[in-house]
Structures are given as C-alpha cells and as structure tokens.
Amino acid sequence: MKSLTWLNIAAAALLATSLALVWFAAPLEASMGAVQKIFYFHVAAAWVGMVGFLITFVVGIIYLIRPNPKLDWLGAATAEVGLLLSIITTVTGSIWARPAWNTWWTWDVRLTTYTIAILIYVGYLFLRGAIEDPTRRARFAAVYGVVGFISVPLTFLSIRLWQSIHPAVIGTATPTSQGGFDMAPIMALIVILAQVTTVLVFAALTATRYRLLELQDQVDAQRALALQAESDLPSHSPATASVAK
C-alpha cells in the first residue's frame, strides 16, 4: 500500500503546484481575461473524464467475456472518477460561458453531450447501488457501461446535426471560437502541466477507489463467513445456515 500513498502524495503536490501556477504565474489572456484560466483544467478534465468512461467500457466488455471481480472494481472506480471530472468540465464550462457567450447554458454540442454523459453515469451508480449480489452487480454494471458508452457518440452526432440546422448562437461569440490565440511559452507549459496533473489525479483517485472496493469486498466476504459461523454454532439445523447464506 506504500505505492498508493506515494501516488496520492505526488498527485496532491502536483495539483497544488499547477493550481498555483495557473493562479499566479499564467498571464492574463488579452481578450477574455481571468476567466480564460478555467481552460487549463477544463480541457484536461474533459478528455480525462471521457478516458475514464472509455476504461469502464473496455473493462465491461472484457468482464462479459471473462468475469473477474478486479475488472468490476476498476470499471466502477473509473466511472466514478470520470463522472467527477465530467461534472467539473460542465461546471467550469458553464462558468466560462457566462462572460464569454453571455449565458450559463447553451445547447452547445460538447456541453450538452457531457451533461447527458453525466446523467448516464449517475444512472450507472444508481444501478450499482440497487443490487446486493456482487457478481450480478458486476455483470449488470458491465452491460450498462457498454450500452451507455456506445450511446455517447450517437448523442454527440444527433446534437451536432441539430445544431447545424438551428445555429443557436447567443451573444456575439460563436461556439467554435475558442482556440487560435497565440500562446505565450509559459501558458503552453502550464497547459501541459495541467494535463499531466489531471491524469495523475485521475490515477490516484481511481487507485484509491479501487482499493476501497477491494477492501469492501473482503469485509463483505468476512461478514458472510461470520454470519455463517454464528448460525452454524447454536443450532446445527441446516435451515438456519442456508438462510444466513
């Protein structure tokens, strides 16, 4: 468990460093000002969050072919952390959109797709919470992890097609005007650092969550054994033993 502790310490240290750099060292962007600083972590959270869902999807497929509880723990951990990063993406995007597009919410392709993805993975967690039996929970979660992930590109496509018919531009800026500014070297450096940091934070949170699920599983197994032993001792009737199982 030493390595997990070190991973967490490294992630925390790097997060503190890059946040400090974003706040104090990164220059103010000429046209957008301070709100542009959101992008360092907004972009990183967006793609790392999707990578989290992708891992849940891949692990789900492998689980359905070759069941193994470790795959289930990994899938659950990456879905949870992916959900967290997607929420960060949507919230920071919304905060940026308020001054930039003059609205908290617009039916922008990416913003809408991320919001629907959030709802899918909230459903994924609901599903996990509604099943007691660990192998059944793992199988159903794998199925929903696969179905949910496949629907995301179709959702993206349908919203993009809809947008091309109804260009919902609010304010003056268009939804596509986000890149293209000349980046100062220090900015580029912090952008890269923010990506690395987010990947490391993702890895640390996932590893921690995985470890927790693993321990939870051991506790459940121990508890089942204890219940079994308890019901076996006083009366040796097979009926009570089977109830405890």
Partner: peptide, 27 residues
C-alpha cells in the same frame, strides 16, 4: 431485464433508459 432484477426497478428503468435514448428522441 436489468432493472427487473434489482431492488429499485420501477424507478430505475427510466433513469437507465432515457439518457441513452437521447439520439432517438432527437432524431
């Protein structure tokens, strides 16, 4: 078939089904 075998099934089906049906609704 998934939700029928869980505890919260009547509530769970719409929560699982509606977000993945967004492309159907849109199209």
């Amino acid at each position: 078939a998934v939700s029928a075998q869980t505890r919260a099934r009547d509530v769970l089906l719409p929560i699982l089904l509606l977000p993945v049906s967004v492309p159907v609704l849109m199209a």
